[in-house]
C-alpha cells in the first residue's frame, strides 16, 4: 500500500511542475492538467491515509511521518477548496508545492506502523493534532502567498493590482485561520496534558515553540492593524514566520527533546 503514498508524491511533483510552467507561460491547458493530476494525487493520498488509519486501527497522526503526511494532506485539501471558491490559478501555484514538499519530507521519516503510545490514547488526540495539521498548512500556504507577493512586486506586476491585493488579503485570512486553529491546538493540548500528566503547561520545548509561533502571528495581526502594514512588509513577515512554524513542526523534535519526543 506504500505505493499509494509514493504515487501521490509523484503526482504532486508532476502537478507542481506543470502548474509552474503553465502559470509562467500563461497556458490554461497546462494548469488545467496540473489541477487534474493534483486532484488525482490527492485521491491517492487520501486512500493511503485511510488505509493506514484502518491498518493501525486509529487516526493516522501519531508520529512524525503520519503528522507530516497529514500536514501535506491538509495543505492539498485547503488548496483545492480555496481554488473551488476563488477560481484563481495562483492558489494552486502556491498550495501544490507546499503539499509536495511536506509529503517529500514525510518520505524521509520512519514509515512503519506502530502501536499508539499509551500517552497518546486520548479523546483530545484528534482535536489537538488534527487542528495542528490544518494550522500549519494555513501558515505554510500563507507563507507561499507571501513569497508570491514578493515575486510579483519584483516583477512589477502593475497590470494586476487586484491580484496583488487579493494575494495580500488571502495571506492575512489564512493567517487568521491558522491562528485560530493554533489557539485550539494550544488550549486542547493544555487540557490533554492536565488529563495525562496533571499539569496544563510544562514549558516543554514543543509547547514553548507553539507559544512562540502563536505570539509571532499575534504580532503579525497587530502590526497589520496598528501600523496599517500591508503588502511587502507583511509578505516578508508571513514568509519568515513559516521558518518558526517549521521549527515547531520538525526542528523541535529533532533538536530539543522533551515530553513530545514520541512524535519523532
Amino acid at each position: 500500500m506504500e505505493i499509494l503514498f509514493f504515487a501521490a508524491i509523484v503526482a504532486y511533483f508532476a502537478a507542481t511542475m506543470l502548474q509552474s510552467v503553465g502559470a509562467m507561460m500563461d497556458r490554461n491547458k497546462l494548469t488545467r492538467a496540473a489541477r487534474a493530476i493534483f486532484i488525482a494525487g490527492f485521491a491517492l493520498h487520501t486512500a493511503f491515509t485511510a488505509w493506514r488509519g484502518f491498518a493501525a486501527g486509529r487516526l493516522p497522526l501519531a508520529n512524525q511521518f503520519e503528522f507530516a503526511s497529514g500536514f501535506s494532506w491538509s495543505a492539498a485539501i485547503m488548496g483545492i477548496v480555496l481554488y473551488a471558491r476563488l477560481k484563481q490559478n495562483w492558489v494552486m501555484t502556491v498550495s501544490m508545492p507546499v503539499a509536495f514538499l511536506v509529503l517529500s519530507y514525510a518520505a524521509f521519516q520512519p514509515m512503519e506502523i506502530k502501536e499508539l503510545m499509551p500517552a497518546l490514547r486520548s479523546t483530545w488526540f484528534a482535536l489537538h493534532i488534527g487542528s495542528a495539521t490544518f494550522s500549519y498548512a494555513s501558515f505554510a500556504i500563507a507563507g507561499g502567498l507571501g513569497a508570491r507577493y514578493l515575486a510579483m512586486l519584483k516583477k512589477g506586476h502593475a497590470d494586476s493590482e487586484t491580484a496583488m491585493k487579493q494575494t495580500d488579503y488571502m495571506t492575512y485570512r489564512l493567517i487568521c485561520l491558522g491562528f485560530l486553529l493554533l489557539t485550539v491546538v494550544i488550549l486542547s493540548g493544555a487540557i490533554w496534558a492536565e488529563q495525562a500528566w496533571s499539569r496544563w503547561w510544562s514549558w516543554d520545548p514543543k509547547e514553548t515553540w507553539a507559544l512562540i509561533t502563536w505570539i509571532l502571528y499575534a504580532i503579525y495581526l497587530h502590526q497589520r492593524m496598528r501600523m496599517k502594514w500591508q503588502g511587502k512588509r507583511m509578505a516578508w513577515f508571513a514568509v519568515i514566520a513559516v521558518v518558526c512554524v517549521l521549527f515547531t513542526f520538525a526542528g523541535v523534535n529533532k533538536l530539543l527533546p522533551g515530553l513530545h519526543s514520541y512524535a519523532v
Binding site: I215, I219, H222
Partner: peptide
C-alpha cells in the same frame, strides 16, 4: 498596543532562551 507588542517580543525572547538552554 506598542507597549503590548514590546512585551510580546520579550516573552518570545524569554521563551526562546528557555527552550534552547536546558532548565
Amino acid at each position: 498596543m506598542k507597549f503590548g507588542m514590546i512585551l510580546l517580543v520579550l516573552v518570545i525572547a524569554c521563551s526562546f532562551a528557555g527552550s534552547m538552554i536546558v532548565q
